[in-house]
């Protein structure tokens, strides 16, 4: 079936089998391999994408459900080869080790900060509670999200 949606700011049209999951469409047909598949059952958050401003799991969405939606993957964050302040904060804070959870973590944090510009630590931990990280113990991820929030708040002042 033909699916039309907006992917990282660009309108796309893709012919795909209806049973295709969004994660497979992104990775295998659109070559956007930043979206990872961990468990394939909604329990790890590695395949988190943003659909119409809301985080969703690309392993539990069929490609057909993206029809007419605005979709952001990790590839859609950087602008003219510049990383976002949030991505820079993840690097500065050492929030990345193996990197497998990172795209989902960053997109989850991106959606959080869009709604809650200065989240509390509890709000950050709650927001990323659906994203498993087996390397960092979460502390550096939480600190990096705070860092990004505070840097942005500083710039606004």
């Amino acid at each position: 079936m033909l699916i039309k949606f907006n992917l990282n700011g660009q309108d796309v049209e893709v012919e795909t089998p209806p049973a295709r999951r969004a994660v497979d469409l992104l990775r295998e047909e659109l070559n956007l391999t930043g979206t990872k598949e961990g468990c394939g059952a909604g329990e790890c958050g590695a395949c988190t994408i943003i659909v119409d401003g809301t985080t969703k799991l690309a392993c539990l969405l069929l490609a057909a459900q993206l029809e007419g939606c605005r979709v952001t993957t990790i590839e859609g964050l950087e602008h003219e080869n510049e990383l976002t302040p949030l991505q820079e904060a993840f690097i500065a804070g050492g929030a990345i080790q193996c990197g497998f959870c990172t795209p989902g973590m960053v997109l989850t944090a991106q959606a959080l900060l869009a709604k809650t510009p200065l989240p509390t630590e509890a709000e950050i931990r709650s927001a990323i509670s659906g994203n498993l990280c087996r390397c960092t113990g979460y502390q550096k991820i939480v600190e990096s999200i705070r860092l990004a929030a505070h840097r942005r708040a500083g710039e606004l002042q």
Partner: peptide, 9 residues
């Protein structure tokens, strides 16, 4: 219930 992502869906 679940996680924030699960609750969104």
């Amino acid at each position: 219930l679940g996680s924030p992502h699960i609750r969104n869906m």
